[in-house]
Amino acid sequence: MLIIGEKLSIIAKRVREAMLKKDKGPIQEIATRQWKEGSGMIDANIGPAEDGGEDLMQWMVTTIQEVVPLPVCLDTTNFSAVEAGLKVHNNQWGRPLINSTSNDPERFPMMEIAAKYNAQIIGLTVGKGGLPADAEERAGIAAEIMGRAMEYGIPLEDLYLDPLVLQVATSQDHALHVVKAIKMFQEMNDPAMKTVVGLSNISNGCPKTLRPILNKYYFVMLMDAGLSSAIADAHEMAEAMQEKKTIDDVLSGKSIDDAAKMTEIKKTMDIFMNKTLYAHSYLEM
């Protein structure tokens, strides 16, 4: 399981300010912490970065790799920023990952760049027409992206399929669609296709105390489905891996000593399985 540390995102105020001021301190501190917590790659999300995206991505890649011996996941919709980042990326620590292309023709140039720089790339299974309705639609789009990747000369081993995790608070039925899509994606090639998710989106919009619980248990469900990587909080995911046996035990119907924990796991899994309707207070019911 590859954890791609999610914390260096322009959405976070502290990170955004450091990016604006080109202040290496906070960026390197966060990157180092994620590495120590078990990340195998660091996501650098600079947003759309329409102005000065090239400089910013280069600065992010070099700033991160100055202190952390890991590859970087270049996260922006700006093609030239991705290309600029790839030019300075230190492949000694592993191959970079582009985040992302999709089935939208506007995002195809990302594949051209991936092929040119021998980079890995995430294929988000959305098209121009909006969000996929279910697992089958995600798989259909995945097949088209795979075909397109081969046309561009990208080996399928370098393509990570992303089924697009949606918020459980508003799109509850998609939690299970995504699990099913992860299983379907793997069947689509031999060796199995690699998969990735933006995990924390599952708990976006949920109360703060609930977020780690939803993130961790959903991660375990996806792991059981064969997920190969996640853009996530490495600290939370390390905890999830420690708790995995307990969770699997509860799911297989065994009793565990900690009754409160058992209830928490059951109730949360019922949410993901669409057996009970989500509400922010579901654990109190």
């Binding site: 608070a169 508003t170 309707l277 989500y278 509400a279 922010h280 207070s281």
Partner: peptide
């Protein structure tokens, strides 16, 4: 117009 918020409000009121 949000079923999850509707459930949540009913929970809060019964609590």
């Amino acid at each position: 117009l949000d079923i999850n918020l509707s459930k949540q409000l009913n929970i809060l009121i019964t609590q």
